[in-house]
Structure formats: C-alpha cells, structure tokens
Design a protein around this nucleic acid. Structure first.
Lengths: 131, 131
DNA sequence: CTATCACCTCGAGTAAGCTTTAAGTCAAGC
DNA sequence: GCTTGACTTAAAGCTTACTCGAGGTGATAG
C-alpha cells in the first residue's frame, strides 16, 4: 500500500490544470484547508485533491471565490454543503442566464456590424442601410 | 429653433443610462471629444450625444474601451471607422462565442446541481447519483 | 561542494472600468 | 447675501483573482 499517494503542489496543480501559485492563493483565500507539510512543503492526499476538485467544479459553474468559500464552509454546520450549493445555484442561474442573453445580444450586434455597408458609424446610428 | 438643444452632463448621462462620472471618465480615456463648455460646464450637442451613443453601442457589442478607442480614432484616416469596426468585430466574434459556450456550460452544471440529491459534495464528485 | 530544481513566504503589482473624495465653482431661487 | 444643487478638477480607491519578484530552504545529482 503506497504510503505516498500524496502529491506535491506541482503535481496537484498539473492534475487540476492550474498553476501551483493558484493553489497557494486558494489556500490563503480560505478555500482549501492547509495540507500536511513535509519539510515545509505541501503534500496533498485524496481529501486535499478532492477539495481542489470541488473548487474547480464550482468555478466552472460560475461561482466567485467568495461564494465558493460560503459553500465549502457550510455555514454553521446545520446546512450541508449540497444544500448551500443548491441555494446559491438557484441564485446564480439567473445571473448566468443574463450573461447568456448579453452574449447573444453582442453576437447579433457583431454579426450585423459585419454585414453593414455604412461608410461611417454615424450612418449606422442614423439607421440608414443596416441599423 | 431651440438654441439649447444642448444637454448638461447630467441630462446626457440619464439619456445614455450611465452616471455622469462615467461620461467624464470616457472623455479622459479618449473615447469622447471634449464638448463645448459654458461657464466651465460641459454641453452636449447632437454630435456629442452621437459619440456617447457610439461608445454605448460598441460596449453592448462587447468591445473593451481600448478597442472602442481604436475604432473611433480611425487609425490614420486611411481606414474609416466602419472598416476598423468590421476588422475588430471579426476578431471579437469568436471571443463572444466562447463566452456563450462557457455560460452554457455553467448553466448545465448549475441545473445538474439543482437536480442533485447528494447529501455531500463528496458524493457528487464520486459521481454517485448525479455526476 | 556545488548546482539545480521545486518548493517556501511575504509584499507588491496587474488588469479594467469605473467610483469616491476633497475642495471648489456657477447659476438660480428666496 | 445665502443656500441649494448640479457641476468642475485631480488623485486616490475599489474589485477580483491572481501573478510576480525577492530572498531563502530542502532534497537530490554529480
């Protein structure tokens, strides 16, 4: 049984697809518990890697670090993380949908701009050929 | 004929839907020409309002202020703004589409999270009921 | 012994786009 | 003549999530 299924920060970082400096930052920001040290150096075990993965998933979901901190800290132990997650997710969803709508609007404007034949932006604004 | 179809910064700001401080900022950032002053105060005429509207449209399209500055300044007079716009728009479109894809991915993750029945995030990560 | 490499800490710097603050001016109303 | 409100300036501050640099440690290779 491998006593050393613990990874250095560099290895954990490669696994997570982020720089080691980002893992240190997440730790100082209170998103990761300080892992065991060997000679002053961080060693990440299964649990440590899982924490990293949780942060990564939450980031992919669009949560800010502040929100992730709330999810992980569990708010007073009465509410399990999954419940906190769900509560925050239902708040976050409209935000993400808003982003989606804005990006779609941007896309339409850009595509209209590509089709536009105006010689000046003033023409565009006065709504002549394109609008 | 109203000699005073010129607006104060506050009026122009309300029209544009941004704070007056933002209009001042856009001006110092080189996005708006300094308008006529009356007793030291800015007065925006039709052209000034049009400039503001151009910046607003470009922002809605997702351009950064630096890009908008390039579009409006026309780069050496050989290329009209509309051509500059078109060139930048074709660069910007993939970025916006990327944003769209990311937001859609976030949406999927959040919706999966709302349907999730796991009691802990650890369960989620180990891919048990939801995944 | 020395070089190399990955790691350590701490403080400062970065990006973008404003917002805020302090101190002052201007025009109108009473 | 005084107050009020909108305006002026320049400079500093804010936010988020890192990133960088300096100066130092620990383990390993030659």
């Amino acid at each position: 049984m491998a006593v050393e299924d613990e990874l250095t920060i560099g290895e954990a970082a490669r696994l997570a697809g982020v720089p080691a400096s980002t893992l240190r930052y997440w730790e100082t920001a209170g998103l990761l518990k300080a892992p065991r040290r060997v000679g002053g150096k961080r060693r990440y075990d299964r649990e440590g890697l899982q924490q990293i993965e949780m942060v990564a998933v939450a980031k992919r979901a669009g949560f800010t670090l502040a929100e992730i901190r709330v999810i992980l800290s569990g708010v007073s132990r009465r509410t399990p993380p999954s419940v906190v997650w769900r509560r925050l997710a239902s708040n976050k969803l409209p935000e993400v949908e808003q982003t989606l709508v804005e990006a779609q609007a941007m896309k339409r404007i850009l595509e209209a701009g590509l089709r536009c034949e105006c010689l000046s932006l003033e023409d565009c604004l006065s709504g002549t050929p394109c609008g």
